[in-house]
Computed example of a mutant assay.
Amino acid sequence: MADPRIIDITLDEKTILWRSADVAQERRIAIFDLLEENHFAPLRTHPDGYAGPYKVFMRVADGRLVIEVRRTDDSPLEAVILGLASFRRPIRDYFAMFESYQQAIQQATPQQIETVDMARRAIHNEAAELLRNRLEGKIDVDFDTARRLFTLICVLHIRG
């Protein structure tokens, strides 16, 4: 019986060189929300018919995102590799808006905070659609799963 969801997700700690408390909190929330509800269905048919649930390990290697998909017993199932060139601008924009939002929370009016938050969400939504498109034919994910995965991709790109 198919169970197309992630039950555990890990990020390569060696990739993350620096993190602020705010970014660490974003990461915790993204992982928590992702594990609470997600749709993650690799499209490759496996000889043993395995169809989830999955454990996922994400890392960046040689400018590429590597999504290692594993069975519940941690045995490898497959790895999906995506070039990151098309994500550079959304990642940069995401962090710029993230910083603006954090500053707005401390200094701005509620209306200004809402405006920055709407812009931040729009960038996040566009990046989630980009990720869904890039995963097309490899892994089927719903929109909310793609949003949370994009947050984690951003965390993997933090540099001190």
Rank of each mutant, 00 (worst) to 15 (best):
Q25N: 02
E26L: 12
E26T: 08
R27E: 15
R27Y: 10
I29L: 11
A30L: 00
A30P: 02
I31V: 12
F32K: 06
L34I: 01
E36A: 14
E37A: 15
E37M: 14
N38Q: 07
F40Y: 13
A41E: 08
A41R: 08
A41H: 08
P42F: 09
P42C: 10
P42A: 11
P42G: 10
L43M: 11
R44Y: 01
T45E: 11
H46M: 10
P47C: 06
D48F: 02
D48V: 00
D48L: 00
D48I: 08
D48A: 05
G49W: 04
G49M: 02
Y50D: 07
Y50H: 05
Y50N: 06
P53R: 10
Y54V: 01
K55T: 05
K55D: 10
V56R: 11
F57S: 05
M58V: 02
V60A: 06
A61V: 00
A61Y: 01
A61C: 01
D62V: 01
L65A: 07
L65D: 00
L65I: 07
I67N: 05
I67F: 01
E68A: 10
R70G: 03
R70K: 13
R71N: 04
R71S: 02
T72P: 00
T72H: 09
T72E: 04
D73R: 01
D73E: 07
D73Y: 09
D74W: 15
S75N: 13
S75F: 09
P76S: 11
L77C: 08
E78V: 00
E78C: 06
E78Y: 01
A79F: 00
V80W: 07
V80L: 11
I81E: 15
I81V: 15
L82E: 04
L82T: 03
L82P: 05
G83Q: 12
L84I: 09
L84G: 03
L84W: 08
L84T: 08
A85S: 12
S86I: 03
R89K: 14
P90H: 06
P90T: 05
P90L: 11
R92L: 04
R92K: 10
R92V: 04
Y94N: 03
F95I: 02
F95D: 00
F95K: 09
M97V: 03
F98M: 00
F98V: 06
E99P: 07
E99W: 07
E99T: 03
S100R: 15
S100D: 14
Y101H: 15
Y101Q: 13
Y101S: 13
Q102V: 10
Q102L: 06
Q102K: 11
Q103C: 13
Q103T: 15
A104H: 12
A104E: 01
A104L: 05
Q106N: 14
Q106L: 15
A108T: 10
T109M: 13
T109C: 13
P110Q: 12
P110R: 14
P110M: 05
P110L: 05
Q111W: 11
Q112S: 12
E114T: 06
E114F: 01
V116S: 11
V116K: 14
D117K: 15
D117S: 11
D117V: 05
M118N: 14
A119G: 15
A119T: 12
R120I: 09
R120V: 06
R120W: 06
R120N: 05
R121G: 04
A122Q: 15
A122S: 15
I123L: 03
I123H: 01
I123N: 04
H124L: 11
H124W: 12
A128T: 00
L130K: 14
L130Y: 07
L130D: 06
N133R: 15
